[in-house]
């Protein structure tokens, strides 16, 4: 699952650096714009069936690949999908 997420992030960012440095701040590095974030939420729902609400997260809670993985895992556990 982690690999899938990293693959998707690399796709969205158009940069493989997110696979190498999982603590890179994707907001500050200008790698993701707001539509990329939206696309990520849609993808998580389609791929894992977990509903991630755009109003639930602040940018800070999802700014690095590691944080994204952590939030997705948390959501899957919450909705009984893990």
């Amino acid at each position: 699952m982690e690999e899938k997420i990293l693959e998707m992030l690399a796709d969205l960012c158009g940069d493989n650096i997110v696979k190498e440095n999982c603590d890179i701040n994707m907001v500050e590095a200008d790698l993701m714009d707001s539509l990329d974030w939206t696309e990520l939420l849609v993808w998580v729902e389609e791929e894992f069936g977990a509903i991630m609400s755009p109003s639930e997260y602040t940018k800070e809670e999802m700014e690095t690949p590691n944080k994204v993985i952590e939030q997705v895992k948390k959501k899957l556990a919450e909705q009984g999908l893990a």
Partner: peptide, 14 residues
């Protein structure tokens, strides 16, 4: 942004 714009974007993406 959170309850209209993002929702439109998500549904159009889906």
């Amino acid at each position: 942004r959170d309850y209209l714009f993002s929702r439109l974007m998500m549904s159009w993406m889906k």
